[in-house]
Design a protein around this nucleic acid. Structure first.
Lengths: 231, 231
DNA sequence: TCGCTGCTGACAGAATTTGACAGTATGGTG
DNA sequence: CACCATACTGTCAAATTCTGTCAGCAGCGA
């Protein structure tokens, strides 16, 4: 029942991910079924491969956020799709996601064989997405609120430009060509509403959770809008 | 100067990619600095990991197209960006690219730890891109022509709906929200033109190369349009 | 100080990988 | 058909790597 080394390293990553707080090497060694000495070697291997594992004496190991996922292999078609998609994200999404897209593109470019790299650099696939310059809304904050299922206090301008105040329960972000939309339950209107992020004057995090669960809101909204669930 | 096994497998993949025609195992063994017996074992390892390597007695080995690229590791942010981007590609691009995006999404989903998988399945990031249903143009054929730098004979409807015939030199594809555009040098107008794919009545591959190189056309077009080169 | 932990080196035994050799199978060529 | 080149498999000893044990040093907090 011996596990190959490479396989064991992946298991170790999974175990590290599971613990949110520092774990001692002894525990990790026990979980991966290996001696402490070997665990230290395994940690070193992962770090050498780029994993952001932090070890502090007296505390233990912790996998820093922005961590590593197991390696994946993609075919040429898949890489092309990923490159095109990442370019779109780099242009359209908020800075944090866009940064992720740029980083991913760099990783992909780094491993591509020369002839494919040239193919992709020559950019026969373009994303032309005129982004609205006036849209300075902090999407990262909204995404954080969505994840935590927190309410937002919104100051929003309607189509006529008149500002309104409302408390909303955000649960999704939509990306259109030149417009980004926050989708939320609106307490004021007692219904689902779409808020163009370029019309959001201010969004204040309340830190309070809303009463319902995000996936439920999402599916009810899909139902109401007649949108099928994604594959 | 011994090379670790895992590293050697990647080298072998690169070598196989370099040869376009069948290579004998003896040559591959020499290139990777290993005995023939070990090479057979290495090939078996790669095949076990999903590489499409074909071996025929009397001929040699060849890496089938749709081949494998070296494994890559992505962080959580990068994965989110890739997922969002792939969703967009799956909706917006031609069937082949879209299929690549779907395959990539499945590979990503397969390796994601449960809590992240739920995060991504719950789809707080949506791509809402109403695709033009009337657009049945064969993008795969156009992409092929672009790669080969081949001319196309185009029947195209202008904005008023009147059809025109022209020979063009395609060099790029642009993806907008609901419209896809082929970018080409137009022999008729002696200038760069953008052709909405939903207005292309027919495109016939001539199989003839155009006189200029694609990257040159691309940069001249960028110059003419005032579009900066992508990072 | 002590206890806990990370981290490194050395070394012997366990496990794996490799090379060499022998043999079979398959497809193309004369 | 014979003959060649090649893919592929089995076996086994040698080479290499991996692992566990032991020993020691260093940093951190109580």
């Amino acid at each position: 029942m011996t596990v190959a080394r490479s396989e064991r390293l992946l298991i170790l990553l999974q175990v590290l991910r599971r613990y949110r707080q520092p774990v001692s090497g002894a525990i990790l060694a026990a979980e991966t079924g290996v001696s402490l000495r070997t665990l230290y070697r395994d940690i070193a291997s992962l770090q050498a491969q780029g994993a952001l594992i932090e070890g502090e004496a007296g505390l233990g190991y912790i996998l820093k956020p922005g961590f590593m996922l197991p390696p994946m292999m993609f075919s040429q078609d898949e890489i092309e799709a990923l490159v095109l998609g990442s370019r779109w994200v780099a242009k359209m999404a908020d800075p944090r996601l866009a940064a992720g897209a740029v980083d991913a593109l760099e990783k992909i470019a780094a491993i591509l064989p020369p002839e494919l790299k040239a193919e992709i650099d020559s950019s026969t696939l373009l994303v032309a997405a005129p982004r609205n310059r006036d849209d300075n809304t902090d999407l990262a904050m909204i995404r954080k609120a969505i994840r935590a299922e927190h309410m937002l206090d919104l100051t929003y301008e309607d189509e006529k430009g008149s500002p309104t105040q409302r408390r909303v329960w955000p649960f999704a972000l939509g990306f259109f060509d030149s417009v980004r939309v926050m989708i939320a339950w609106c307490e004021l209107r007692q219904g689902f509403r779409h808020f163009r992020t370029d019309r959001i004057v201010s969004a204040v995090a309340t830190g309070k959770r809303y009463a319902r669960r995000r996936p439920v809101l999402l599916s009810e909204w899909r139902e109401a809008e007649g949108i099928p669930a994604p594959s």
